[in-house]
Simulated assay, not measured.
Amino acid sequence: MIMVIAAVILITVFFGLYQILSLNEDVKQISRKYMLTMETMGYLDAASRTSLMQDLSDLQVTDIDLTGSTMTDAGYGNAVYLQITCKLPIEQLNMDGNDMLRFFFEDGTIPIRVRRMSTAKN
């Protein structure tokens, strides 16, 4: 009985970690898309910023902060930065006390930061 409970807990933890890694990779892919736009334009314009925030919100990401990103024209050949700080939603396994038969899931978040840098080609 204890082995079955331990196996279920391990499988649950594995799928939770997979969910975190998958969401993190999705955020990185979105950041790459907007970094390519920033290379072309030389900065992250208001329309792209709104679209970026919407794409991240579609992933259920919360507390999105773009502080540190290049928001004004950097000029040809200068560095442009995209920095995304946000929190990924997860379900955490919570064991109440020392009783192995009493556990439940609770909503939580994990903070991540994605930093990208490239050269403006505008």
Rank of each mutant, 00 (worst) to 15 (best):
Q60A: 08
S22V: 11
L36M: 05
V13L: 09
V27Q: 11
I11N: 11
K33W: 05
S69G: 15
Q83T: 13
I90D: 09
T67H: 01
T12A: 07
S69E: 00
I20N: 05
Y43M: 03
N24Y: 14
D45R: 02
R116Q: 11
M35V: 04
V27E: 14
N94Q: 12
I90T: 03
S57I: 15
T62E: 11
L10T: 04
T67Q: 14
V27T: 07
L66Q: 01
I84M: 04
E106V: 13
D63Y: 13
K121P: 10
D45L: 00
L101D: 04
F105P: 00
D99H: 00
D26I: 13
S118W: 00
Q60L: 15
V8W: 06
V4P: 12
M38A: 10
I90Q: 10
R115H: 09
L17E: 13
N78T: 11
E39K: 03
L56R: 01
D58S: 07
S31R: 02
M35K: 04
F15Q: 02
M95T: 15
T72Q: 04
L17S: 08
E39Q: 01
D55H: 07
T85A: 07
N94T: 08
A79M: 12
E91R: 07
M38D: 05
Q83N: 13
Q92N: 09
E91F: 10
K121Y: 04
R116F: 08
L17A: 08
L66G: 03
G108H: 05
D26F: 13
D55G: 12
R49G: 07
S51V: 11
I2C: 11
C86M: 10
C86V: 14
Q60V: 10
I112C: 05
K28P: 03
I20F: 09
D55Q: 06
Y76L: 01
T119R: 03
E39M: 00
T85F: 04
V4E: 03
Q54E: 12
S118R: 03
N122K: 00
L44Y: 06
V114G: 12
M117V: 12
N24K: 10
M53W: 09
T70V: 09
N24R: 09
L21V: 14
M1C: 15
N98I: 08
G75N: 02
V80T: 15
S57L: 06
M35W: 06
D26V: 11
E25D: 10
Q29V: 08
M71Y: 14
T62D: 02
G75I: 02
L59G: 14
R102F: 10
L88Q: 02
K121I: 01
Y76T: 06
L21M: 15
D107H: 10
M117R: 13
E106T: 13
R115G: 11
A46G: 11
I84Q: 02
Y34I: 07
N122Q: 00
